[in-house]
Amino acid sequence: MPEARRALVLTAHGTASPAGRQVVLDLVAAVQQALQQRASVLVTDAYVDVQTPEVADVVADLVTRVDDVVVVPLLFCGGYHVRVDVARAVEPFASAHSTGALGPSPLIADALAMRLREAGVTQDEAVVLAAAGSSRVEATTDARTQARMLAEVWGADVDVAFGSAATPSVPDAVNALRERPGRRVAIASLLLGEGHFHDKLIASGADVVTAPLGTATQVVEQILTRFDGVG
Rank of each mutant, 00 (worst) to 15 (best):
53 P>K: 10
54 E>C: 02
56 A>P: 04
60 A>M: 13
61 D>N: 14
62 L>M: 13
65 R>G: 10
66 V>Q: 09
66 V>D: 03
67 D>N: 04
69 V>D: 08
71 V>P: 05
71 V>H: 00
73 P>V: 11
75 L>C: 09
76 F>H: 03
78 G>C: 12
78 G>F: 00
78 G>V: 05
79 G>M: 10
80 Y>T: 14
81 H>W: 10
81 H>K: 10
82 V>Y: 06
85 D>K: 01
85 D>E: 14
86 V>P: 01
87 A>M: 11
88 R>F: 07
88 R>Y: 00
89 A>Q: 04
89 A>F: 04
89 A>P: 09
90 V>M: 13
91 E>I: 04
92 P>E: 11
92 P>G: 13
92 P>T: 12
93 F>S: 09
93 F>R: 02
94 A>V: 14
95 S>V: 10
96 A>P: 12
96 A>V: 07
97 H>L: 08
98 S>M: 11
99 T>V: 13
100 G>D: 13
100 G>S: 15
101 A>Q: 02
104 P>K: 06
104 P>V: 10
105 S>R: 08
107 L>S: 06
107 L>N: 02
108 I>N: 01
108 I>R: 00
109 A>R: 01
109 A>E: 06
109 A>N: 05
110 D>M: 07
119 A>W: 02
122 T>S: 15
125 E>K: 06
125 E>S: 07
126 A>N: 01
127 V>T: 05
127 V>I: 09
127 V>G: 00
128 V>S: 03
128 V>F: 01
128 V>A: 03
128 V>N: 00
133 G>Q: 11
133 G>D: 03
134 S>F: 01
134 S>N: 06
137 V>P: 09
137 V>I: 13
138 E>Y: 00
138 E>A: 14
139 A>M: 11
142 D>Q: 10
143 A>R: 03
144 R>P: 09
144 R>V: 08
144 R>S: 11
146 Q>N: 03
148 R>A: 15
149 M>V: 01
